[in-house]
C-alpha cells in the first residue's frame, strides 16, 4: 500500500511571520515600556544601590561600599536594641497574627453571607466597605475608638480590666491596635474571594455527604475547607505580602512609636531614606525585606503540595 506522506510545512520565519511578531510586540510595548521604566529599572537600581554609599545629590557623590551597608545594619544585631532587629521582629509579629486572623474572619463572614438573600448582599457590602474607605478616615476613627477614654477601654474597664492608656500610645498595645485595624480593613475584601470560592464547590458533594449522614461540622471540615484550599493558598500569599509592606496604618496611627514599638521594616526604610538621607543603607534594608518575603513565599509554594487540593 503506497501511502503518500503529506509533507508538513516546516516552520520558516518568513517576512510575514516577522511582521506578525513585530505587531504583537508593538501591542505589548506601551505596557512593557511603562513597566520597565517605573518598576523594573528602579528595582534593579535599588538592588545595586544597596552596595553603594549615596546620601543623595548628584551621581558623582556615589561611591562603592561593598557589604558595608549590610554590616552597618547587622552590626550588634538584636531584637531589642538594633533597629533592623526591632523592625524585623515587629513586622513578623504583625504578619504572623494578622494573616491567620484575617483568614478566619473573612472565611467566617463568607460562610455566613454566602446566600442569595437580600440581607446577605447588604451585609456583604457593609463588610467590604472598610476596604474602599479612606485609610486616613479609618485610622482617625480607630484612634478615637482605642483612645484612653474611648469605647473599647470603657468596655474593658467595665469588665474589670484596668485600662489606663490609649492603645496607640502604649508599647504593649500599639502593635495590637495596628493588627486590629489591619484585620478589620482586609477581612471584607478577602471575604469576597472566599464567597467566590464557596460558590465554586459542586453541590453534589454536599448532597452526597447528607445522604451519608454527615453533620454540619463534618461537611465543613471534610468538604468546605479542603475545597477552599486553593483560595486559602492565594489569600495567604497575598496577605503575607501586604502585611510585610505595611506602612500607611503605622504612619497614621503610631508613627512607629512609642519609641520603636511599632517600627516596621518599611517605616525603617522610609526613615533611613527620607529623614536621614542614606539611600544605600535604606536599600540594604529593602534587600532584607525582599529576602524575607521571597523566602516565605518559596516556603508557601513548597508547602502547597502538602495541603492544597485542586479538583
Amino acid at each position: 500500500m503506497a501511502t503518500t506522506v503529506k509533507q508538513i510545512p516546516t516552520y520558516k520565519p518568513g517576512k510575514r511571520q516577522r511582521r506578525n511578531t513585530l505587531i504583537a510586540y508593538s501591542f505589548l510595548a506601551p505596557n512593557l515600556i511603562g513597566f520597565a521604566v517605573i518598576t523594573l529599572i528602579p528595582v534593579i537600581l535599588s538592588v545595586a544601590l544597596a552596595f553603594f554609599n549615596w546620601n543623595g545629590g548628584t551621581l558623582d557623590k556615589i561611591s562603592w561600599a561593598g557589604l558595608d551597608n549590610f554590616k552597618l545594619i547587622f552590626d550588634n544585631f538584636s531584637f531589642t536594641k538594633n533597629d533592623l532587629g526591632i523592625s524585623l521582629k515587629n513586622t513578623v509579629l504583625y504578619t504572623a497574627v494578622s494573616v491567620p486572623l484575617t483568614i478566619a474572619f473573612s472565611l467566617g463572614f463568607a460562610m455566613v453571607l454566602n446566600r442569595a438573600a437580600r440581607a446577605a448582599k447588604t451585609f456583604r457590602m457593609i463588610f467590604f466597605f472598610p476596604y474602599i474607605a479612606s485609610i486616613v478616615a479609618i485610622c482617625t476613627c480607630w484612634n478615637y475608638i482605642l483612645f484612653k477614654y474611648g469605647p473599647v477601654n470603657t468596655f474593658l474597664n467595665y469588665l474589670g480590666l484596668h485600662m489606663t492608656k490609649s492603645w496607640t500610645q502604649s508599647r504593649d498595645f500599639a502593635i495590637w491596635s495596628l493588627i486590629i485595624v489591619n484585620v478589620w480593613r482586609h477581612a471584607g475584601y478577602y471575604m469576597v474571594m472566599y464567597i467566590a470560592g464557596l460558590q465554586n464547590i459542586p453541590k453534589e458533594l454536599y448532597e452526597a455527604a447528607i445522604v451519608d449522614g454527615a453533620n454540619a461540622w463534618q461537611k465543613f471540615r471534610k468538604i468546605t475547607l479542603p475545597m477552599l484550599t486553593p483560595t486559602t493558598f492565594f489569600v495567604s500569599i497575598m496577605l503575607t505580602i501586604t502585611c510585610f509592606k505595611v506602612f500607611d496604618i503605622v504612619v497614621l496611627m503610631t508613627e512607629g512609636g512609642p519609641g520603636r514599638a511599632t517600627q516596621m521594616l518599611v517605616t525603617y526604610i522610609y526613615e533611613l531614606c527620607f529623614t536621614q538621607i542614606k539611600y544605600g543603607v535604606a536599600s540594604a534594608v529593602a534587600m532584607v525585606l525582599l529576602a524575607v518575603v521571597v523566602l516565605i513565599t518559596i516556603f508557601q509554594f513548597k508547602a502547597e503540595k502538602k495541603w492544597v487540593n485542586y479538583l
Partner: peptide, 18 residues
C-alpha cells in the same frame, strides 16, 4: 539627623510614661 531620630523616639517613650 540621626541623633534627632533617636531623641525623638525616646522622647515619645518618656512622654507616654512607658
Amino acid at each position: 539627623p540621626e541623633l534627632m531620630t533617636i531623641v525623638n523616639q525616646e522622647h515619645s517613650l518618656i512622654m507616654t510614661d512607658e
